[in-house]
Amino acid sequence: MCDADNTTTKKTIRVATGDRAILPEGAKTIPIYIMGKKYDVPETLTIMKAMEFAGFKFLRGAGCRGGICGACPTVYRMAGDYKLHYGLACQTVVEANMYLAQIPFFPANRAEYNIEEIGGAAEAIHALYPELFRCVACNLCTKACPMDVDVLGYISALKQGNIKKAAQLSFDCIQCGLCASRCMGEIPQYHIAQLARRVYGRYIQPRAEHLAKRVEEIESGKYDAMLQDLSAMSKEELEKCYVEREREPDMTAPGAWQPKETRYL
């Protein structure tokens, strides 16, 4: 049909609207397999854009589109190879002959707790998630992590009772759940890691003294007058105030710079 009339093809070139990908003129397309079905998509797209290009519409399984919300974990494999690869659909660029499927949600166990009541001991985490002790150290969780988190490392740390280490090792986790999807011990690693970080923040991590001091100052009304002044300003005055604000020059050594206005320090 296309062969019959070149001009028709040119006239019906897709124009992007909303999330629809813009196909650059002369863009090369490559075949990919979404849930087993073949689609030809522009080679420069991410998996998520390619799926939208192919006609899929995301009601779930898409979120920030910036690689941080964990809504679009995707498993893929290259034709002819057994090896499974893992990535975020919004961050991973398509490759020719990629077989892929998204796993937007995994029904992993998520314990209910009140962080104020459980206390800061590792045993609280153990009691909420006893399945932690079913880990066999196969390391499939770490291999599956699109954020390169040492999942086995933090699970091992938690088994040993080291909440601090687990909180630090799991810091980059975006809760996508791919670890749990691969776990033969049926462990919800990402939920346990989140609990570990919460317990660490609530009970173990030292309080920031300067923050406590500032909160105290705010509560004692030190900044009320300033806030009232700002609230009373017109939009123009506020803009002027913002534009003329004092700024610490870039790359200043710590403590070397002081603003002229020192009333609120």
Partner: peptide
């Protein structure tokens, strides 16, 4: 495992 009482889990060696 989920039926084990929390106190037992807390007391038992790993």
């Amino acid at each position: 495992p989920s039926a084990l009482p929390a106190e037992r889990i807390a007391e038992l060696p790993q």
